[in-house]
Write a protein that binds this DNA or RNA. Structure first.
Lengths: 179, 179
DNA sequence: ATTGATACAGAATTTAATACGGCGATTATC
DNA sequence: GATAATCGCCGTATTAAATTCTGTATCAAT
């Protein structure tokens, strides 16, 4: 038996890894997911049904999490982007996180290794609205301090790219990493 | 004449602002852009052609920038997320920015008001690949130092939300902001 | 060598996207 | 205040794409 033997507990079926053709497909769909399967097949060298089958598999496996409309922040009156560092005492995860993610201005919440506990990304209409949001964030139980960094200009903003990640050359005479 | 009088220079046509129905549509499409216009119309209380018409307008006006597949970073072998602060001397914009955005691991580049010049968001396969990327970033002309913050856990990550931004209450006896 | 599974192409069918014509309501103009 | 014009919407018709089905070649395992 293969590695799918322990698959009794996981509901995901195959989870075959993403090959070169899949990456091509992802590259097209990240740019524009409205292309027809005929067009997509042309671009990656497959027939329409074959391209369709691949995309279905990528969806099933979770490689494609979602197909979403990307909204211009200015169109929904949120031209101001800021990053906020939040220091907390005894971060009790669920309730506080839920409270913070309720605000529609909050787009990301990360726990960071470094000089701060939480890093969140927010978009607001203007500095006044940011002030209001920060005030509400500060009132969240567990939050001891916040520092905010307002973005002046955004030069690049794109989704996860399917391109290969180049790697740091391994030290000579050490084929495998030490850890 | 109205505010469109100065529209001689801008090529965008109408750019009517986004109303409540548009926000509902955006709310649906951000969640799942693969719904049919019949389904979309049902959700927001419109006929399929009417829903289609609104979506077309939202695309034309740029409110919907793109319809994209959202990829699971793990599926393309980029499970490691990090933010990098880059200090530069005399940031000469274009060439250096181009050089940095060439790396497929780089997803965002922002200029930030605060104690650092540039804030970039990157995804790599592992810490070794991050090390390689940082090394290459450091070799970019104009870069004087980098500080990186590795993300331990991501609790929330979602696209721009069409929901209304709540605002900070204006000071009493001051109907309009002072600036 | 044989069996099984997988991925693909081509054709057929079903479903959805798109274009068109007409109606009602709101807005601008005289 | 009456009229014309515009805009947004609906219902229908047409076109295009998604989806299903069947057969075939290729690769892996027995």
């Amino acid at each position: 038996m293969d590695e799918e033997t322990h698959g009794i507990l996981q509901n995901r079926p195959a989870a075959r890894d993403v090959d070169a053709t899949d990456r091509k497909i992802l590259g097209v769909l990240v740019d524009d997911a409205t292309v027809s399967y005929a067009e997509l097949g042309d671009r990656v060298g497959l027939s329409p049904p074959a391209a369709h089958e691949r995309v279905k598999r990528l969806r099933r496996s979770g490689a494609i999490r979602n197909t979403a409309a990307i909204i211009d922040p200015k169109a929904v009156r949120k031209p101001l982007l800021a990053f906020v560092h939040i220091d907390t005492k005894g971060w009790g995860k669920t309730p506080e996180l839920m409270a913070i993610s309720e605000h529609p201005e909050v787009e990301e919440i990360h726990s960071v290794a470094g000089d701060t506990c939480m890093l969140i990304k927010v978009r607001t209409e203007d500095t006044r609205a940011l002030e209001g949001l920060l005030s509400r964030l500060y009132e969240t139980p567990g939050v001891t301090s916040t520092r905010s960094y307002v973005v002046l200009s955004t030069y690049l903003e794109r989704p996860v790219q399917p391109g290969i990640t180049t790697e740091w050359p391994a030290p000579r005479h050490m084929a495998k990493p030490l850890y």
